[in-house]
Design a protein around this nucleic acid. Structure first.
Lengths: 341, 341
DNA sequence: TATTTTAGCTAAATCGATTAAGCAATTATT
DNA sequence: AATAATTGCTTAATCGATTTAGCTAAAATA
């Protein structure tokens, strides 16, 4: 069961390994290898169980048939589903996926990019954090194929796949307003990033368009690294007399999950007089037993498109046309219907 | 920003690249490189921003500092969390993770193993399906480092990390019985695999030990590929007069999730007279508003241990001692307390 | 002093593929 | 018939590291 190399075949047939390489890469015609020889080589290769050594090839060509994937945390179901979609699409192109989690820590992203480049991945799909810009700019300068996914930088012209954060938030909050909510709290996180700013903008705009005044005390921020405690504090505040809300919009799935847990444990009664909603969804939203609106991101599509973009860039090299793909989000009602009286 | 190679440094310093290689690998002493030279080289390497080319090194040494990970489906939260834990532990050893999903289809596992080996991953962590045995045996024959995770083969002596499927199921069902359930349904899936057989054994044994007769009509099987429909049929059956159950044990997280969804939509009233439980847990169990017992697998530990085992095997080569690590599972109550009157 | 040992370094092979350049024999063109 | 073009294949360089074998000069030993 020793590995069979090009050279082994060439020796067996008494021809050069160049010839074998031509045939095995399907370049017989182009390289004017005779029909008979081509067949002889193919037969022998099959007989000997030849499989090209990816590393050797990668070393020579600089192409590894592997793409790198950098996300905040693959154990978050949103990213896990993205990863799966990316894997499936990559497989169609004969690629594998090597991944790493950044935990929203920029230095980790930088390190991962370094290692992935060093391992000669053909391209990198990144869900970047705000401070990752410097690393991304390096990639761009070096013409290294990459695609930004889910997150992005406003002024950057590069391959990007994202959802319509503004419109999605606008639509969900419009639904809340139409259902009668007047005091909707907004739970912010990662507030510096472009996609989060867009979400907040959606919230503000829909209020303006609906002639509902926003009470800025209801816009709350929590830190990614301390979500548990922060959310509890924030929610407790919301139920104090002076803030008394009738709706909450969580700006992403994780804040929603933590928030809902706290609400169920401490404000169960209030849940029926509250319109809850969030951007993005977990599976669990299907199991909630109180009104809930969640904006579903087209995860499959996002993953697929990001791979397609990177494949195009890998193929076309520096002549690719950077594209920005914005996908719509759709919201759905869960639990029983809205409980505002 | 061109890449700096060993040769570049050697030319710059007017010495051989062999020397540079020795120094950069920390083998100065062993290879009797003088202190002054060592420092000179290190300084120059730093100045020039040298980074070893992993591919070239991998090509020469056959070690890629990458491990392969094969699971049924990385978008299942159980596997996603495993993947994250594996990633973290691998990072500690300076390794990256390349992954692939098998969808419980054996041919996919085979293909992934092929590709991963070809890409010279240093070892493979696999959550195998029943029919994967043949591929696993090949790995063993070739002395290729691998660890079986979560799933296993009864008669095989190889590195394995799993949970105590028997005892976990036993304990959970004992709790149900102690709470007064007499007719507990068992929802089976992937029933041919060793770990699933062990779970069923736990269910049967605890009944025997508790002197409760098992009604074999209550042991239901669903197919992995058609879980949605199958579960619905099975659950509908359970509520017919002749089977009328007072408890359900789902044998894994996915059946539980699909089952609970169906129960909530169609048997909401009955939920309060039913003891529900499952092996393994999703996040969502924390949000359930009815009694539920779930056996929590020590996912972090499982991932960590599997990496540790494979690292040991990689290091020791054929002289490693295969270990079987069995971790306990712990169950917890969720929702309000058991509702059996 | 003659020989052995050691310190410190280098040349060249190797891993397995890809590819630029080129050679010899045959066929086509003028 | 002389020249040009084409066919079919090969040689050797290359990617960037690791590693075996070995060389030279200085130090140690006999």
């Amino acid at each position: 069961m020793k590995k069979v190399s090009l050279e082994d075949i060439s020796k067996e047939l008494g021809v050069s390994k160049t010839l074998i390489s031509f045939v095995m890469n399907g370049r017989s015609e182009e390289k004017r290898v005779s029909k008979e020889m081509t067949e002889k080589v193919l037969a022998k290769a099959k007989e000997m169980g030849y499989k090209a050594d990816y590393l050797a090839r990668a070393m020579r060509t600089g192409k590894s048939n592997t793409i790198g994937l950098i996300m905040a945390d693959i154990s978050n179901i949103f990213f896990a589903k993205l990863a799966r979609s990316i894997e499936d699409e990559a497989t169609k192109f004969g690629y594998n996926v090597i991944f790493g989690s950044s935990d929203e820590v920029s230095a980790k992203t930088g390190k991962l990019i370094d290692v992935f480049r060093n391992k000669k991945v053909d391209g990198i799909i990144i869900c970047p954090t705000t401070e990752d810009l410097k690393y991304i700019l390096n990639l761009q300068r070096d013409n290294y194929p990459f695609v930004l996914l889910d997150r992005y930088f406003s002024n950057m012209k590069c391959n990007t796949v994202l959802v319509d954060n503004y419109q999605g938030t606008y639509d969900i909050n419009l639904e809340l307003l139409n259902n009668g909510s007047k005091r909707i709290a907004y739970i912010n996180v990662n507030s510096e990033s472009a996609h989060m700013k867009e979400r907040l903008r959606g919230y503000l705009e829909v209020h303006k368009d609906s002639n509902v005044k926003v009470d800025h005390k209801l816009i709350k921020s929590v830190s990614f690294r301390n979500i548990g405690k922060d959310i509890e504090t924030v929610i407790d505040d919301l139920f104090k007399k002076e803030e008394r809300v009738d709706g909450i919009f969580f700006s992403n799935n994780h804040t929603a999950y933590v928030g809902i847990k706290h609400l169920l444990n401490n404000y169960k009664e209030e849940l029926n007089h509250l319109s809850l909603s969030c951007f993005d969804s977990y599976d669990y939203t299907e199991l909630l037993q109180f009104p809930f609106i969640s904006g579903k991101q087209p995860i499959e599509e996002m993953g697929k498109k990001s791979v397609d973009l990177i494949m195009e860039q890998i193929e076309k090299g520096e002549f690719f046309e950077p594209k920005k793909i914005v996908l719509p989000i759709q919201f759905s009602h869960f639990g029983n219907k809205m409980g505002i009286e």
